[in-house]
């Protein structure tokens, strides 16, 4: 579904990613862990073809995402970091726009699942942060994407909102959909992911099954980034 082969990404004099390789298969929920500036967002942008690697090869559904971006994006749902939205639109106007661009069917079921049915007529700029995040997530889920890429989906949310978003992500696994989500909330990975990728200072320092047991992820992460 997605593969990184010896990926190097350099911005000016800074090496953001250094020789990263991994593969993500169908129906996996992968937690992307790393400190701020570790290279998580860069990895996601490379996966989408929004940025180009300095060296190495990214394949998304077997194709180069930079060359075939527009074509491949119909299979992807993406929630960018900080969830940029068109604040001047009403919720339904934004979701309609995404639906029509993705040539998807109705999003009514999704809206109910995510809990947005009472907010459809609200202007996005008037929504709370939690509801804005739900709008972004709903937009990412429109069109039944095969792969969901979520960059810090629960960042800045209160615990109840975080739980709601986590439930939505967990629900996606039942639909045999792959999810990659980045976070620095360790308990979130423990709760949601079944595989863990840890990037530290641009290098891949762990790629494997999530360690079992309460606090095991935190213990592993601290050991890796020490």
């Amino acid at each position: 579904m997605l593969s990184f082969k010896n990926i190097v990404k350099i911005f000016g004099s800074k090496t953001a990613l250094n020789d990263i390789s991994f593969k993500i298969d169908k129906a996996e929920i992968v937690g992307f862990l790393g400190l701020n500036g570790a290279g998580k967002t860069t990895s996601m942008r490379l996966a989408l073809g929004i940025q180009q690697p300095t060296d190495g090869e990214v394949k998304l559904f077997g194709k180069d995402p930079v060359e075939h971006r527009a074509e491949l994006m119909s299979k992807i749902g993406y929630l960018p970091e900080n969830n940029p939205l068109y604040s001047y639109l009403k919720v339904y106007e934004y979701l309609d726009f995404i639906k029509e661009i993705k040539q998807a069917k109705s999003y009514e079921g999704l809206v109910e699942q995510i809990g947005l049915q009472d907010r459809l007529n609200d202007r996005i700029e008037n929504l709370s942060r939690g509801y804005k995040q739900r709008v972004g997530l709903c937009a990412a889920l429109i069109g039944n994407p095969d792969l969901l890429i979520l960059d810090e989906p629960t960042s800045g949310l209160d615990p109840l909102e975080q739980e709601k978003i986590r439930d939505i992500i967990k629900n996606e696994q039942k639909k045999k959909r792959s999810v990659i989500f980045s976070t620095h909330i360790l308990s979130e990975v423990e709760d949601v992911a079944d595989r863990l990728i840890v990037i530290h200072q641009g290098k891949l320092v762990y790629d494997g099954k999530k360690p079992k047991g309460k606090g095991a992820v935190e213990k592993l992460f601290k050991k890796l980034v020490k």
Binding site: R45, L48, Y78, P80, I98, K102, A139
Partner: peptide, 14 residues
């Protein structure tokens, strides 16, 4: 500036 360009690039549009 608002990063909505990233949203557009994540959609199937050229």
């Amino acid at each position: 500036k608002n990063n909505t360009f990233e949203v557009l690039l994540s959609l199937p549009i050229k």
